[in-house]
Computed example of a mutant assay.
Amino acid sequence: MHFRYPLQKLVDLKSNEKIQAEWGLSEAIGLLHSERNELAALEAHKDEVQHQLGNASANRTTASQLMLLQDYVEYQNKEISRKMKAVVTAERLVEQRQQELSEKMKEEKVWEKAKEKAYAQFISMMQKKEQAELDEIALTRRVQTV
């Protein structure tokens, strides 16, 4: 006789939920890295434009070109601000997914412990049955030898 846990499908479901939560966390971390990389690229580009603006003001440049560069720097500042908000949102998503994963791991552990307890009870019951059979065989032999 082998062990068959009646709630195995529930244990499998909890395991699958944990795996899905891991995927969700991985996806959120990937999004966060992407947002941070884009923010870094925007900041680097803004620095480059500011450097161009500094060079333009030192050299002979028209006022309209200076205003255009200054407007572009302001646009870059707005984009950086928008991207910073996106990074904060992505960080919150990562935290949320970490919490979800933690909950799913706890749920899976609870059901795995229940399964282990049921298995231990099954083993104990099988050992008792086996011992009872051995005792019966020994008693039968003793009766036959007497």
Rank of each mutant, 00 (worst) to 15 (best):
E100Q: 11
V94N: 00
L25P: 05
V88H: 12
Q50S: 10
K18D: 12
R92A: 14
V73R: 01
E35L: 03
K18Q: 12
A120P: 00
I123V: 15
L134Y: 05
E95F: 07
R82F: 08
V94R: 06
G24C: 10
Q96W: 14
L13C: 07
L25Y: 11
D71C: 11
V146E: 15
S124W: 06
E38M: 14
G54D: 07
Q131V: 03
K129F: 03
E95M: 09
A44K: 09
D12A: 08
Q121K: 09
V143E: 10
E48R: 09
I80C: 05
F3Y: 03
K83H: 09
L66H: 03
Q98L: 02
K109D: 15
A120Q: 10
V73C: 13
N59A: 14
E22G: 08
I123R: 06
D135H: 03
D47K: 10
A118P: 00
V143W: 09
M67S: 15
L31N: 14
Y72F: 15
G30L: 03
R97G: 02
Q121P: 03
G30W: 03
R4I: 14
E130Q: 09
L13M: 10
V146T: 15
Q98W: 01
Q50W: 08
A41C: 01
L42K: 09
L93A: 08
Q127L: 15
F3C: 00
A86M: 13
E17Y: 07
Y72N: 14
Q99K: 15
V11T: 02
N55C: 14
E91N: 00
E22S: 07
S15R: 06
R97M: 14
P6A: 02
D47F: 10
N16R: 09
K85V: 08
L68E: 10
V87C: 00
Y72D: 13
L53C: 02
N77S: 11
E38C: 08
Q65K: 11
L25G: 06
E100K: 13
V87P: 00
S64T: 15
M67K: 07
L7K: 07
V73E: 04
L32Y: 07
A21S: 09
S81P: 04
R92D: 11
Y75T: 14
K115E: 07
A58W: 13
Q98Y: 05
L39H: 02
K46R: 15
E130D: 13
V143P: 04
L93K: 12
R92L: 07
